[in-house]
Amino acid sequence: MTTEDDLYERLATYEGRPAAVAGEGGDPVNAPMIRHWCEALGHPVPADGTAPAPMLQVWTMRGLSTHPGTAGGGSRAGAYDELLALLDGAGCTAVVATDCEQEYLRPLRPGERITFDAVIESVSPRKTTRLGSGHFVTTRMDVRADGELAGRHRFRILKYAPARAPGERPRRPRPVVNRDNAGYWEGVERHELLIQRCSSCGTLRLPWLPGCNTCGSDAWDTLPACGRGTVFSRVVVHHPPFPAFAPPYAVALVELAEGVRLLGGVVGVPYDKVRIGMPVALEFRHADGEPAVPVFRAEV
């Protein structure tokens, strides 16, 4: 059994090796493919007959032909196929493109024959993404038209092992319950938000702590929150994505009427309409079999 490090060591040996040698486009640059591309994408057809620049890679695609000797099929170098096979063998059977950088030196004209060479520029260590875990593979390609360098193309794919079986719903993170905060989460489960109150000096505290930050006393009782509050601060989460949540979403620091503050999601209003000072009302969300969590409904 190959360990992950062994695998990466083997993958890294492919850096600098050719991904395509003396590749040839299946078709010369031609008006029908240009027109079809423009039609599919809603792009204006260039009046001078040249190919729209972002078509650069299209002329190098091998399409459905995989047999050496068929159109566009004989160009991929063995090293690239070996690298992909190695990744397939390690369970990274799925592929998705992530980045592309193109430089256009001159337009491509109908009739020109496309040739290309590409090199495997880098293979990343194992990375975990929302789709699954795998390796990024970056290739760099020079594209020639009738022998003249016409464009450069850098392309990055992720070869990955899909994260979960189709249809399986990602779970939300669970509260960390311990002896110091168990009473809080028991309250939440009953749809009651309990604020800790120091029995000695009366200072309120949230989240729960073993002792009072004001007087040091470890004696306390609780006060149920009335449920009114205002947004004290907020952020919008775009990245990184967490499987159970669909970004973007707003997370607010809400100041409760009692004066203590609590972090929570804001519902009932689009993420970009959450404002500081906005009045909110406490609610509890009990998502399908998951523990209850406090959330705040915008009062607009």
Partner: peptide, 25 residues
Amino acid sequence: GGLVGRYLAGHFGPSAVLRSLRVRL
């Protein structure tokens, strides 16, 4: 990438020439 090109071509018109394009998904 082509749709980004379409957006640029639509705005800058037929006389504009795309020199480079980088897209990150």
